[in-house]
Write a protein that binds this DNA or RNA. Sequence first.
RNA 1: GGCCCCGUCGUCUAGCAUGGCCUAGGAUGCCAGAUUCUCAAUCUGGAGAUCGCGAGUUCAAAUCUCGCCGAGGCCA
Length: 522
Amino acid sequence: MQPKSSRGKYYILDFTNMKSVRTRIAPSPTGNLHIGTARTALFNFLYAKKHGGAFVLRIEDTDRERSTKEFEKNILSGLEWLGIHWDEGPEIGSSSYRGDYAPYRQSERIFSYKKYLEKLLFEEKAFYCFHTEKELANEKKAQMESKIPVQHICTPWRDLPKRDAEKKCGAGEASIIRFKMPPTSAKEPSNYQLTFRDIIRGQVHFFARLLGDFPIAKSSVEPLYNFAVVIDDYEMQITHVIRGEDHIPNTPKQLLIAKALGWTTKNTIGDTIPPWEYVHLPLILGPDRSKLSKRHGATSVDEYRQAGYLSDTLFNFMALIGWNPGDAREKMTKEVLIKEFSLEKVQKSGAIFDTTKLDWLNGEYIRSKTSDELFEIARPYFDQAGISADAILLKRILALEQPRLKKLSELGEGIGFFFAVPEYNKELLRWKQMSDEDVAQSLKKSAECIAGMTAPFNKEVLQKLFFDMIGEGDKGAALWPLRVALSGKKSSPGPFELLEILGREVSLRRLQRALELAGATT
RNA sequence: GGCCCCGUCGUCUAGCAUGGCCUAGGAUGCCAGAUUCUCAAUCUGGAGAUCGCGAGUUCAAAUCUCGCCGAGGCCA
């Protein structure tokens, strides 16, 4: 059960006794749905679904300085779009909830935190600290300079009688509430280690002493993160705390709080066991291997959505960051992902969010859609590009563009020439070493050929007729100028496909224009 | 500064608990060829990792042990 090296995975997980799973995710109200948050949500979701458990969504909005309503809506609709559905949590855009442990917004659970805060205060496991920020900063500075651990042992306030502390509070003195590091004893000497088990990393040890008297609330109605989550996890009957690796250092604090509230048990080797399992996921990194953040570019699900990535793509791709099914499969449906997901196979090291591979996967998903499905998804991008036309026509064009499409946002650029006469340079019409005269001849011949064609204007028929008339010879010399005349682009679908869609009249007009361009002397 | 975590192709990774099947496999990206012009798609091939470094154990180490280094995270 213990890791022996940094690389090997040595855990044999036993979930046979697990009846129900309740995982949770607590998105901070920082605006958009960050890729990292979404990935954490996804892993929680996959794990819960795999084991028939509930996925709980909790909103951390105790910081009331920010306007959280709009932010919350963004985050929730982002998750919804990805297909990560929560069994319990807030309803989008409303004040109601689904689930038995409501409310799921921390701002509405203050009464609960207050209750436990007062309990800890009463039992003298927590206390009011009256140090000023300046005093604290000075202490830290001194500690760093003398190279000793940065920690705050809060003398004299940790031993101030509760009544006196309350008096000071009543007098308006600024204070925060701190957790009182348990006194050392023979049983638990000052260097005792706090050990917790992480499903991905095995046992992780911390020296409890180094934590000092850490803060848990700004006041009895303003709990801090480390305190609030413990209360929520307990009250919401959470069984699996699955979160990012950046929370590892928070874990011993939370363990201590849970222990102080009497929620932990001891296992056979004396470890303190909370009523839930810990799982710390590897971080998603930017190209420079630091935690993915704004300076790396697009970091929110919304930005990827707007760029024309499909929700299937993102769902699949995020699942593959730090996890794989153990075989060569990469493109997997949500159902397969749920079926195959396992925490044992989750990676320990962080992974760079590689958009090149994302592009490839998105192309895969785009190609796997039927033309109707793709059309529905692509609709907003037609609008965005200012293209409006008959649905049947749009569908045909989309089908032509489908194999070369990586992101839907590129759609307009790729198909604009179908709707507007393309602008291009004379040189583009030239195939290899053709002279101006050759180009003109080629175009003339194509034009004659097309002019002589009658319905049906169908690409197979067109192709056959065309080659019959052109005969053998350099196909490029015939096809390249024709295709450029029609599309005005270096790369595009084939000329016969274009002819079929553009139709006889439009095609001839474009050919005529190309001819004029080729004949021009500049 | 302290603590914690991590380290296999550029990138995502397989292999590591049970050392030999690994002259390290796959995918992506890149390069080349095939495919009725181009691009894409598709198919075929290629380059790309002395498994962070160093020592040790062993007949044998990516895999076990020790040391070092590097990078990241958290604490304000």
